[in-house]
Amino acid sequence: MAIRSKKTQWVENKLLLFVLLWIAGSVCCFVPAANAKDVFANDGLHDPQGPSFNELQRPDAAFAGFPVDSVGNKVRWVQALRDGIITPRTNIVPDTTIKILDMDLILGNTGDNAYVRFPHRAHTEWLDCANCHPDPFKEKFGTSGIKMGAILEGKFCGKCHGAVAFPLTECARCHSVKPDTFRGKFGVQPVEKH
């Protein structure tokens, strides 16, 4: 038998190591997937010993048939509402008024990034005016001092986006207006037909 050089042996060992780690990785990817059939069994939150563990609705069942997103709950919540796939109640107290405001703002103080188009309609379909005004957003345009850093820290838009609404990884959903083609004025925009 030919004597293998040290270098050949070293390469063989590395190859063996690579193959074994690859197998290990594959095995471990499949094992949690098998456990994840019941997402609550392995979510680090729910106690499978809890007496009502089996009574709780799982997200995969709750979201079945909803328009699919790629992030967050992987649900297009605004679309689900508009398409009538979900019909969440607007009020419990009978005399609460519902105010849908169809008004877009364009925020231009965005540094090197695209301007932000903020749709009041999508927000007021879910929220009350008082949820955002006057805290954290003052009604007068341009006076709230919104900064991306503060948003990332959970202030302003970050109170919801990054917690319960689509996360802050989706820059272009807000920063959607290209400065080099925008010819209008910042602030309130003319109403668009939806």
Binding site: W77, I86, P88, N91, T96, E125, L127, N131, V164
Partner: peptide, 16 residues
């Protein structure tokens, strides 16, 4: 939270 927003808009809990 995700379960509840299927059934209620934000304003119900966060306003009313």
């Amino acid at each position: 939270h995700w379960f509840h927003r299927i059934r209620f808009r934000c304003k119900v809990c966060h306003h009313e």
